[in-house]
Amino acid sequence: MDIQLIREIKNGNKDSFKELYEIYADGALRTATGITGDRQLAGDAVQETFIRVYRNLDSFDIGKPFKPWFYRILTNECSRLLRKKPRMVSLNRMCDEQGCQVADREREDYTDLYNAIKSLKDIYRVPVVLKYLQGFSEKEMAGILGLNQNTVKSRLFKARNMLRKKLEAGEGRIGLGRKGLG
């Protein structure tokens, strides 16, 4: 399906490009949010990614899978935008318009874990996001990130251990466990 769509987009079919957007937008926004930790930056990254995809489709090898190529561009855009803004890991970012309510126990665990993921350094957080949100294999991630496959494996291993430690350190706190900054 992707190949046919890509051919149509190359021929200037706007509806096909919209269809591609519909297929990839949610995953891209989720991934970009996971990488940048900022919904506005994520929106910008996804916007720039689709524009770059559109403009560079001629250089895409139609014999290769589209998804890893797409996510390579997206991760590069996220890195680019992250360098402009200082990253902040704040519990407040996890609050929605209703504010920081005390949620049920299950939601609380995920909030802490998500914050822990956001607090990881980029080199650990990005593979975690790509693996757990998009299901990329270590080999695919190596291609997307321009890394050796063993490096990806090692970073994922370290990331998972770091997350465990962060969560264990946070156990026993009351309510949402407002760690604040620093």
Binding site: D26, R30, Q47, F50, I51, D109, I117, Y132
Partner: peptide, 30 residues
């Protein structure tokens, strides 16, 4: 692994308005 996946899914929920705004900007530029 399941917990990590669920944490990411929960934390990265997509707002339909953002989705639409992003497309509108792309459409406008291209």
């Amino acid at each position: 692994d399941k917990k990590i996946e669920q944490a990411l899914n929960q934390g990265t929920r997509v707002d339909p308005e953002t989705r639409e705004n992003v497309w509108n900007n792309i459409e406008s530029r291209l």
